[in-house]
Amino acid sequence: METKGLNSPGYEIPDDVKGAVAITTIDRIYNWGRRSSVWPLMFGLACCAIEMIATAAGRYDFSRFGMEVMRPSPRQADLMLVSGTVTKKMAPTIVRLYNQMPEPKYVVAMGACASGGGPFKEGYNVVSGVDKLIPVDVYIPGCPPTPQALINGLIKLQEKIDGQHWKDTRWYREGDLAAIPIPMLGPDLIYQEQIPAIKEASKEA
């Protein structure tokens, strides 16, 4: 099914070699390779993680999309499925994990909490969405998203990968990707970019 898209380069292939030759573009074959082996980081935060486990289990089985290899180590993972409430206490760890993942890496915010704070948003220990910390590729609303909704989101991610061009994705440009500065646990969660402002404010006090 998926190879169909792979083998339509827009060039005419002579009839007599059609069975033996395939022409594709680098982008296509490369994206195809990536989208068919997205390995998620084995990483559950809250309630949504249970639905993630259910999705990985027999009934919904996301190994049908090449995603069954859940990696406990960020070094071997391509996808961070942020499944649950991101708390301030957990925030430094999440950024650290993200920094440790090798490129190309993707982030899916699963559920209301990871997308935008969720029902607990008003709480003092809750980060309003994981996109406050790391870049997010796909947002899946729901609380929790059912396994089918999660798979729908993962298919969206695959579509996104399909549309990428190896020349202009972030991680193939020259130079190292800067690691995301890790926020600190102070009197509250302190983002590195807030430091000057906080310094100003506390001087006045």
Partner: peptide, 22 residues
């Protein structure tokens, strides 16, 4: 909510708090 409170209006930092030395 987060757009209203970029640094958290009610977050109190102790006197002379210096995040760089924290």
């Amino acid at each position: 909510a987060e757009a209203q409170n970029p640094y958290g209006a009610n977050v109190k930092y102790p006197d002379q708090f210096d995040p760089e030395k924290w």
